[in-house]
């Protein structure tokens, strides 16, 4: 990890360093998600799934040594930006490789979207050249199956639509994103170039290039997913998962169906604490979460000093603050 690239995730107020690590690597717990909400970092959820804790803390130590960051241990380690750090953050956020479009909960996991783009282009390109034997750009069996099914579903007409509308969408992106996307694509008839060469040509470090790539695919997805979902590109890239984890979604569905708390406990066979966490996850991630729903209020009132009620109030005020 190139240390300075972590600066934008901090502010001049103290933030919990572990919560930020878990957000960046995509660990979905109430405590991490509410920290994400509090710090305005939810869009960056899971952008660095492979970042190791050791690398992260090493980078923070370097930033601290360079006086960009001040670290302190309260109940848990926290850190804030110094004035120098804030300045560096501002400069960094103006770079064309910085992440302005990423948003896990709206455009999905950028890595999966990237792999889908690479594979679908490869499949269509090779098909048009009657090449049937080749090594796919990804090894993930489920992704391969999904693209295969998608490919059989889209007919010849939609193939052309895919090619044309992908060109159209890419043409609307900033120059850097265009260059990266176009030269990363490859098939048996177009080799593309390696990430390393691309980074060299763009005069970016490896880590900066990685950000530029995340930004490129994210900005493309933002465009595509705003289109009519019946069109061919959105049909391929539609975000399959709901915003909520599967179990949280189930619980929230039951709440919306008007089931009572005891009915929900019976039906889901889960501990009460877990069900409450599901509701908190919904409260954090759903824009239309109903804080006034009778059941939600009822559970809160049962123990107004308890974790659930406190957390819910905090989430509510954070969200209202955000929307103001």
């Amino acid at each position: 990890m190139q240390p300075n690239l972590l600066l934008p995730f901090f502010s001049t107020d103290f933030r919990r360093v572990k919560a930020i690590y878990y957000l960046l690597t995509g660990k979905r717990t109430i405590s991490n998600l509410s920290a994400g909400l509090e710090y305005g970092l939810l869009p960056y959820f899971r952008i660095f799934p492979k970042l190791s804790q050791a690398d992260y803390f090493k980078a923070l130590a370097e930033l601290t040594a360079q006086h960009y960051l001040v670290q302190r241990t309260d109940e848990q380690p926290v850190a804030r930006l110094t004035t120098t750090g804030k300045l560096a953050k501002t400069v960094l956020c103006q770079q064309d490789y910085w992440l302005h479009s990423v948003n896990y909960f709206e455009i999905g996991d950028w890595q999966i979207q990237w792999e889908k783009l690479m594979l679908s282009v490869q499949v269509i390109s090779n098909y048009r050249h009657h090449i049937t034997k080749y090594i796919p750009t990804t090894n993930h069996p489920l992704l391969l199956r999904e693209i295969r099914h998608w490919f059989y579903r889209v007919g010849a007409h939609q193939q052309q639509e895919f090619i044309d509308s992908l060109a159209e969408s890419i043409a609307q992106l900033p120059k850097l994103a265009q260059t990266i996307l176009v030269n990363s694509l490859h098939s048996e008839t177009f080799a593309g170039v390696s990430d390393f060469q691309l980074a060299q040509d763009l005069q970016l470090t490896g880590a900066e290039f990685q950000l530029a790539r995340i930004e490129a695919i994210s900005s493309l997805m933002t465009l595509i997913l705003a289109e009519d979902p019946a069109r061919v590109l959105p049909s391929l890239f539609q975000v399959p998962e709901q915003t909520l984890s599967r179990s949280a979604q189930r619980t929230y569905d039951l709440v919306q169906q008007g089931k009572s708390w005891s009915q929900i406990q019976q039906m889901s066979r889960q501990k009460e604490g877990t069900l409450k966490e599901h509701l908190l996850e919904a409260a954090i991630l759903l824009t239309d979460f109903d804080f006034k729903a009778p059941l939600v209020r009822q559970i809160g009132q049962e123990d107004p000093e308890g974790f659930f009620a406190q957390k819910l109030t905090q989430i509510k005020s954070l969200k209202e603050g955000v929307s103001l």
């Binding site: 390109s125 090619i163 060109a167 176009v182 030269n183 694509l185």
Partner: peptide
């Protein structure tokens, strides 16, 4: 010598 443009890439891909 240089990276491909969108048009060049599309031509060879599709």
């Amino acid at each position: 010598n240089s990276l491909a443009t969108r048009q060049q890439a599309w031509q060879r891909l599709f």
